[in-house]
Computed example of a mutant assay.
Amino acid sequence: MTQIAIVLFDGVEELDFAGPWEVLAAWAAQFPDDRVSVFTVADTTDLVTCAKGLRVAPDHTWETAPATDVLLVPGGFGINGKLEDEAFLERLRAEAGRGTLVTSVCTGALALAAAGLLRNRPATTWWGRLDRLAELDATIEVRPDDRFVDSGEVVTAAGVSAGIDMALHLVVRLHSVERAREVRRYIQYDPEPPV
């Protein structure tokens, strides 16, 4: 079973986690033989209040969560407090140290940088925080024009909707291009911005 954990915290940006959740949970539901499980994890199972006011109940705490193969850290204004939360940063380091594929969406990359996980790697984040990413670790090769950057053990995505693209990339990486196309068709993800 491939276990995919999506991190929640107060102030998390809704689409940063819900976009990838939709992709990955659709994959798990539509293709049960692929043996994929997606769940949310937070410091407690108390309701999380997201950036735009949505309230969500996490599935697990860090202590009760299954062993994780993929960890997804979303962004949002709540990530700012996590940059100095040593217990949180140590959890990220511990996951990476166990061989977990660590991923981020939007400003979630700032937490990865603060944890030292982006040292000497290419990475991206939301366009409004690219400078902050470089400030956190001058060794990061900041890629402002990439929707997502896969540097092997770490994958970072740009802002909000780029997380959907990154999640489809994860389906490719963990299974196949064909499976990712099937998931994309199922969720009818065909971006055609009207503006």
Rank of each mutant, 00 (worst) to 15 (best):
Pro193Leu: 11
Asp33Ala: 14
Pro193His: 09
Ile187Leu: 04
Leu110Val: 13
Trp21Gln: 03
Val36Arg: 09
Thr49Pro: 01
Arg147Phe: 02
Leu118Gly: 03
Val102Asn: 03
Glu153Cys: 08
Trp27Ala: 11
Gly75Asp: 08
Trp21Arg: 03
Thr44Gly: 08
Ala94Leu: 07
Pro122Cys: 12
Ile187Thr: 05
Ser176His: 05
Pro20Ile: 00
Gly97His: 05
Gly53Asn: 10
Thr124Leu: 05
Gly19Ala: 06
Phe39Tyr: 12
Leu8Arg: 00
Ala57Gln: 09
Leu71Trp: 00
Gln30Ile: 09
Leu15Ile: 15
Leu8Gln: 01
Asp145Phe: 02
Leu83Thr: 07
Phe17Thr: 03
His169Pro: 02
Arg184Leu: 03
Ile79His: 06
Val12Cys: 09
Cys50His: 00
Leu54Asp: 02
Thr107Tyr: 08
Val105His: 04
Pro32Tyr: 11
Asp59Ser: 08
Leu92Lys: 01
Thr68Asn: 11
Trp127Asn: 08
Gly19Pro: 11
Arg181Trp: 12
Leu112Gln: 05
Arg179Pro: 14
Ile140Ala: 15
Val105Gly: 06
Thr44Gln: 05
Val105Pro: 02
Pro193Ile: 10
Glu84Cys: 11
Thr64Gln: 15
Phe17Asp: 04
Ala167His: 12
Ala67Arg: 15
Met1Phe: 12
Ser104His: 06
Ala167Phe: 06
Ala42Trp: 01
Pro193Lys: 04
Phe148Tyr: 14
Gly75Leu: 10
Gln188Glu: 13
Val73Thr: 04
Thr61Ile: 12
Leu54Tyr: 13
Ala158His: 05
Leu168Ala: 07
